[in-house]
Design a protein around this nucleic acid. Structure first.
Length: 419
DNA sequence: TCTGGGGTCCTAGGACCC
DNA sequence: TCTGGGGTCCTAGGACCC
């Protein structure tokens, strides 16, 4: 049996910015994507001003100034650190936890059912606020999909920030008013198809024939319908190693030269390989892509990609950089204004079971030690204290982040001083 | 000047095998 | 007139999520 709680941090990135900067409290606040491109998070005040998610900064800047909207570049070091603090706090209350994203967790509260769960969740909420400064909302229900619905209601319609959807009568009333496009797992495409079939509310979808819907859509839709009926199909999942690791960034300015593309790509490889080693995997292949801007109508466009298998699996930054660069040279064409390059590490396997190439001259034990040492130095003294020379020194292609907050919790020099 | 960066799962269809 | 019946693996593409 299961009783799920979905814990969701309210306006997470915006809330993180407020934790150490009280001036941002009570005013409309937005957080910008990499390169200060578009809005990716909004405080409630900003939502009330109808600023849409994805609003391009350069088009909205005047509006922001006029309406006294504050903005910040995104600061993932800060958000990642506050996220792990929130998750650690939650684990204190319920060890049965699945960290679903940077700002969401599912808890299985079944073994705590002897408590009044609504009251228990309110305790969780105030403890997390007190320990981390982050406001959260909690939805309780017998399935994950319903817990998502409950969370939605908790955010919109309650003062307490906790909503319980276990009671069938309450569920009936809520699902009746709940539009299908707000259901977890129904995207724009399927919402449109469902509406064409006169299915517009969660209740109508729940009462449709699951088997028929499976034939029309897929097994995903069948499971979703059962979840709405209160039959749990999606279990709490433990943390699994990623099956692929991606790293890419848009450039601060367009890039034409191959050498600069190589530097950028090498930096992304270094980042991806670090993540790869952290999850104790090796990659057997790589996918490299580059493209020009998709919005620019004046300049010539070009996009290409390439996939390559390695002769032996690896998590060695230097080895993978050399493959990535040779892939890049294959697809690079001079004369274009490139906007982005990146890579995906493919076919990841456990580093314990990897086979070394019998005929390779690489001394893997030695290079493993080297990588471990580099990682340790960079964890202790900050990212990129030691890096590969092919990443370049000046890095003219680097992203813009003109409005970034200090790394209050992860960099000694950025600690808040109390005077 | 200027528009993010990651991920997952499922299905259909082709190649190949016995 | 009239094509066997399984099975696996791989890939591309679609749909969705935060």
């Amino acid at each position: 049996m299961t009783i799920f709680a979905l814990v969701d941090c309210n306006n997470f990135y915006a809330s993180c910015e407020r934790v150490f900067n009280p001036k941002l409290e009570g005013v409309p606040l937005v957080v910008l994507s990499n390169n200060d491109g578009c809005v990716i998070a909004r405080s409630n005040e900003a939502k009330r001003l109808q600023i849409p998610l994805g609003a391009p900064f350069f088009k909205w800047k005047n509006f922001f100034i006029k309406n006294n909207v504050k903005w910040q570049s995104s600061n993932y070091a800060l958000y990642g650190d506050l996220s792990s603090r929130v998750m650690a706090s939650l684990a204190n209350f319920c060890p049965d936890i699945e960290i679903y994203s940077i700002d969401e967790s599912f808890l299985n509260l079944f073994s705590l059912n002897f408590y009044d769960l609504v009251e228990y969740c309110q305790q969780i909420k105030s403890a997390v606020k007190q320990w981390t400064g982050i406001p959260i909302s909690i939805g309780i229900a017998p399935t994950k999909t319903l817990a998502k619905v409950a969370n939605y209601i908790a955010k919109k319609e309650t003062v307490t920030g906790v909503f319980d959807l276990r009671d069938e009568k309450i569920r009936e009333r809520v699902l009746e008013d709940f539009p299908i496009e707000n259901i977890w797992g129904i995207g724009r495409r399927n919402a449109k198809r469902l509406k064409e079939m006169q299915i517009e509310t969660a209740k109508q979808l729940r009462d449709s024939n699951a088997k028929d819907m499976r034939a029309k859509f897929s097994v995903v839709m069948e499971r979703l319908i059962q979840e709405l009926q209160g039959i749990s199909c999606l279990p709490l999942e433990s943390v699994q190693a990623r099956k692929q690791i991606m790293s890419s960034r848009s450039f601060g300015h367009s890039v034409i030269k191959l050498e600069e593309l190589e530097q950028a790509l090498s930096s992304y490889v270094a980042r991806a390989c670090y993540k790869l080693r952290q999850q104790k995997s090796r990659a057997k292949g790589i996918y490299v892509f580059l493209h020009t801007s998709m919005f620019n109508e004046k300049d010539l466009r070009y996009a290409n990609s390439i996939t390559r298998q390695f002769p032996e699996s690896s998590n060695h930054t230097g080895y993978i950089i050399s493959h990535a660069k040779s892939c890049l040279r294959k697809i690079y064409k001079p004369g274009y204004k490139y906007q982005k390059t990146g890579l995906m590490l493919l076919d990841l396997i456990d580093d314990q079971i990897s086979q070394y190439d019998l005929f390779s001259e690489n001394n893997s034990i030695k290079s493993d030690k080297l990588m471990q040492t580099i990682d340790l130095i960079n964890i202790k003294y900050g990212r990129n204290t030691v890096f590969s020379s092919s990443q370049g020194i000046t890095q003219p292609w680097k992203m813009k982040a003109n409005f970034i907050s200090p790394c209050y919790t992860t960099r000694w020099n950025d600690l808040v001083k109390v005077i």
